[in-house]
């Protein structure tokens, strides 16, 4: 393709864009909002995942044993537990150790043993899973072993965390779909108006013998421009906002955000790519329906 042709395509696209500035502005804004929400959702779930995997790795199970078990029976229970798939570590904590730990938390002025008369605590196993998602399943299996009368793992908390991120994903996806449809529709409308404004010229070009692609290119450039400019604005806003967040939050030790530039860069690039895809999609729909070339 000739350079002069490429320049011509860009000039025509620029003319079309400046012909209807209000619509150009509205379209770019919609793309920006769409990509901004998409970006926020992506960053949110990225961080939620990171947060959960750290939180979950702390999640361990405690299996409480019947008081009547002999030492041999306790060994049997341990063997049974070790047979379960997905277990990372298992540690026996005797009732005396447990009481000592408890005593430490109460301090020395309050003698637990004297108050309670005898040690009321059972022997326990502290079990860690390799994969946090397996915790509820493993807990269930451990519970079935004879001699285990209870398994604690903060039941519900893990499940609830999974549910929350699940819903965050679904809701942001719904938002994104609606907004993306809006952006595509607006890009299609912009293209349609450009086609309409140039319909005489297009008819003439066809009769003179211009190829379909020669006629289409300016419209695709226009659509891609709308998509890319909109998403670049969104990425700029997102990067600025997230950067500010990173700076303010690093001082707090509990929450650590994803700050790896390689990861963030990929996310930003993908967002701009998504904008371009929206542009191509809008133009494609519009050209197929309104430009019979």
């Amino acid at each position: 393709m000739r350079l002069s042709n490429i320049l011509y395509f860009f000039r025509e696209a620029a003319k079309s864009l400046s012909r209807n500035r209000l619509l150009t502005f509205a379209t770019i804004s919609t793309v920006t909002i769409c990509i901004l929400i998409l970006g926020m959702a992506v960053l949110l779930s990225l961080n939620a995942e990171r947060f959960m995997s750290r939180l979950e790795s702390d999640v361990q199970m405690i299996a409480f044993l019947d008081r009547s078990l002999s030492d041999a029976e306790i060994d049997e229970v341990q063997e049974e537990i070790e047979k379960i798939d997905g277990i990372k570590s298992i540690k026996f904590v005797s009732r005396d150790e447990s009481l000592r730990e408890l005593q430490e938390t109460y301090g020395s002025q309050y003698d637990l043993k004297a108050t309670l008369g005898k040690n009321p605590l059972p022997h326990t196993f502290e079990i860690e899973a390799k994969n946090p998602q397996d915790v509820p399943k493993i807990a269930e299996l451990v519970y079935r072993i004879p001699g285990v009368y209870k398994v604690n793992y903060g039941q519900g908390v893990v499940e609830r965390l999974f549910q929350v991120t699940h819903w965050v994903r679904i809701i942001s996806l719904a938002f994104i779909i609606v907004l993306a449809a809006g952006a595509v529709f607006l890009i299609a409308t912009t293209t349609r108006l450009s086609v309409f404004a140039r319909r005489k010229e297009i008819y003439l070009m066809k009769l003179i013998g211009a190829t379909d692609w020669f006629i289409r290119w300016p419209f695709f450039i226009e659509g891609i421009f709308l998509g890319v400019v909109g998403s670049l604005l969104a990425v700029a806003l997102l990067a600025a906002g997230y950067g500010a967040l990173l700076q303010n939050i690093t001082s707090m030790a509990i929450i650590t955000l994803v700050s790896d530039m390689a990861v963030l860069g990929k996310v930003y690039l993908a967002l701009v790519g998504t904008g371009a895809v929206l542009g191509v999609l809008g133009t494609y729909i519009s050209l197929n329906r309104f430009l019979n070339v």
């Binding site: 005489k200 010229e201 008819y203 003439l204 009769l207 003179i208 013998g209 211009a210 190829t211 379909d212």
Partner: peptide, 22 residues
């Protein structure tokens, strides 16, 4: 074929009643 139509038309000069000038 559709894709060959432009080449056909390049063999022809078309003159219109209403001129169709830009």
């Amino acid at each position: 074929k559709r894709s060959e139509v432009p080449l056909l038309r390049r063999n022809m000069g078309i003159v219109f009643q209403d001129f169709k000038l830009l």
